[in-house]
């Protein structure tokens, strides 16, 4: 078994809203998979289908070699889930909640529990209603991380954590990865995604627009080039893959598609290069490009990579 999650052509409508519109998602065993997309793109809906809480209208979803709806109970022994908006039972203390959730899954190790509580600086004696948003999230995180589940499904698990706890979270996930666990991580925090994820899937309006490693995705986006040549800049306007060109005498600035980089550099070298600065796209630029509405067309479609 190499795919822990495989979803294809998933469709889910709520009344007139089409929350999922043919979504594909593949998560391989042992990887940390980033699940990204703008608000309302359908991330939580996908996760709730994977948890057997919602039923898809069409398309297929497989989870740990089972059917998420039919085999929910048995599959759930092997996974742990942290929702983005954690609500706790107001009269149960955090410690009681962690114990209860752990025991329902078949027990949890007391040392691991104590270690996680310590690491996340969580007081387990507070009642559910007395925790702040971040602390409620920590309760759910400790419960999930203390389990020995094969798969962790985390839906924006750090949206309420402070930067210090964000670091603790990242360390914990790195540890889980080393133990060979698979993680599906939905997140809006790009630094977190960059630090943790082996591969990412970006979805928009219920469809997958990109899947791949961060390196692959970078390759698909534009690099910005600033150069000073030894002679006048050759005529580049109209060259495929070169955008936003600005020239002045021997100097030029432009954006270039990953696959046109070679051609462009060839042209420049022929004239002679005095200095050149190439800046790869920042993660922000990359995601903004996928999130922004005006880029839905050809570029988005072409960029889909299936592995």
């Amino acid at each position: 078994m190499s795919n822990v999650i495989s979803v294809s052509g998933l469709v889910k409508t709520f009344g007139r809203t089409r929350a999922l519109d043919g979504l594909d998602l593949t998560v391989q065993a042992g990887e940390v998979h980033g699940f990204l997309g703008p608000n309302g793109a359908g991330k939580s809906t996908t996760i709730r289908i994977l948890l057997g809480l919602l039923r898809q209208d069409s398309g297929t979803a497989r989870l740990l070699d089972g059917d998420p709806w039919r085999d929910a109970t048995t599959l759930h022994r092997r996974l742990a889930y942290v929702p983005g908006d954690v609500t706790l039972w107001p009269t149960l203390s955090g410690g009681e909640t962690i114990d209860l959730l752990g025991r329902m899954r078949g027990g949890l190790s007391p040392q691991r529990r104590a270690e996680l509580l310590d690491r996340f600086e969580l007081d387990p004696r507070k009642k559910g209603r007395a925790y702040s948003k971040g602390n409620r999230q920590k309760v759910a995180l400790v419960a999930a991380l203390a389990s020995d589940a094969d798969l962790l499904i985390l839906d924006e698990p750090t949206s309420g954590l402070d930067p210090l706890m964000e670091t603790v979270f990242q360390e914990s996930i790195q540890e889980e990865r080393r133990k060979g666990r698979t993680v599906l991580l939905s997140s809006h925090i790009l630094a977190e995604v960059e630090a943790l994820c082996d591969r990412v899937s970006i979805i928009r309006r219920g469809r997958t627009v990109e899947t791949g490693t961060l390196a692959e995705l970078r390759h698909l986006t534009r690099t910005s080039i600033t150069a000073e040549l030894t002679g006048p800049v050759p005529p580049l306007t109209g060259t495929a893959g070169v955008h936003d060109l600005w020239t002045q005498g021997n100097r030029l600035r432009c954006q270039v598609d990953g696959d046109a980089l070679d051609t462009l550099l060839g042209e420049l070298v022929r004239v002679g290069v005095r200095s050149l600065v190439s800046r790869p796209p920042t993660l922000d630029e990359m995601f903004l490009r996928h999130y922004a509405d005006d880029l839905t067309g050809a570029a988005g479609e072409r960029a889909v990579v299936r592995r």
Binding site: L51, A72, T73, L79, V86, L101, I153
Partner: peptide, 11 residues
Amino acid sequence: GRADAVLAGPV
């Protein structure tokens, strides 16, 4: 949403 926490377990 509290039911989710239980139902996402083996219940």
